[in-house]
Design a protein around this nucleic acid. Structure first.
Lengths: 199, 199
DNA sequence: CCTTGATTGGACCCTGTAGTCCAGAAGCTA
DNA sequence: TAGCTTCTGGACTACAGGGTCCAATCAAGG
């Protein structure tokens, strides 16, 4: 991997973007390099030219790209989860984002479990992205605690994990049943759980 | 597939049991027939003798077998989710079951998403098992509603989906982070959400 | 014992897939 | 234009995994 010309950077970007959609729709193990090659109108050599580490490195890039997209869709609420209204708005943003996806979007956590067996290093890396996401929730809850909006016995980190788990589970069921309803129910449940700690 | 002798039935059972543990630990796509062959001290021909439909049929048997195990671990509470104490006891049973598993137990829902691409029929079948599980939760909530223990605006089915999503998400995070804590947090959150509808 | 059918071992085939290689085209800089 | 690097196409290799086949063995009834 040496320097990239403008053309090269464009090709690389095109590969990542198209590959992301393919992987989201069909899973990591369900997407072959040939699928990606076909879906991007490129050749094998280009894939390995831009991602010398092969599929593993490509998956890294895909995970980072997708996480940026997902986090972006939750702005600006994700950064300012300081009031109960913010949490509601965040919920709506998440639902809207996943409802608008044409592809069956996979949960970041199921990507982790998929990688866990054959590529533990990448799994840890992708899980790091998930934890980054979860950390925004923790931070919001922590601020609300400091502002006296939560009961003293509320554990921000634990609550954030609960919300995140509900979210990921909701995405899982969304995919399995091909309906947005489970995600909505899961998020509403998570917010209800949060509110049970309301002061 | 004709009649089975006692010996044949035993072999078949041995295959299913061992294969289940392998698949739970490494995922459907992460487990090859050769892995199963090695793990059960059998041969290829036996696999196809007892499961003429190949891997797909074997996966069916595995899913049914595992679902029976998981449901059994939740007895008797799963059948009688009529009081808040029952829900707490159920929660504890679930946590204990998954905490005691030596293997990294996969969530039934992640099995569905894994199958979704290459074997939609089996995915639907496995999802049926998941819905059967979820139905026990719905039934419990419905009875509690009839007994006047829930607010009138509580939707048993929707609440059950929320609980189930939290559970599945908790299992996902449990696997990803190799810790039982996320499952506990997720279930506690789900029960808190339920209690917010307490009358 | 003999026959029939269930059971078992393992070699074999075919396809799909990750990854390699090299030659040629395109682009940049002097 | 010359010479270098980057970019691209596609054939090729190696191998893993699902699935097939056949011959050998074992079990049960007549």
């Amino acid at each position: 991997m040496t320097r990239l010309t403008a053309k090269g950077a464009a090709t690389r970007g095109r590969i990542v973007e198209a590959a992301t959609d393919l992987v989201l729709a069909r899973g990591v193990n369900g997407t072959s390099l040939d699928d990606i090659r076909a879906g991007t109108a490129t050749s094998k050599s280009q894939l390995f030219h831009y991602f010398p580490g092969g599929k593993s490195e490509l998956v890294s890039a895909i995970a980072a790209f997708q996480m940026d997209r997902v986090l972006a869709a939750q702005r600006p609420w994700l950064d300012t989860l300081d009031t109960w209204e913010d949490w509601d708005a965040w919920r709506d943003a998440v639902v809207e984002h996943y409802a608008s996806q044409t592809h069956n979007c996979c949960a970041i956590s199921s990507m982790v479990t998929e990688l866990l067996v054959h590529d533990p290093e990448r799994a840890a890396e992708v899980d790091g992205h998930a934890e980054r996401w979860c950390a925004y929730l923790t931070a919001g809850l922590r601020r609300m605690g400091e502002q006296g909006k939560l009961r003293a016995d509320a554990d921000p980190e634990r609550l954030a994990v609960a919300v995140f788990a509900a979210l990921q589970g909701g995405l899982l069921l969304m995919q399995a049943r091909n309906s947005i309803a489970p995600l909505e129910a899961a998020l509403d449940g998570a917010l209800a759980a949060l509110r049970s700690f309301r002061l």
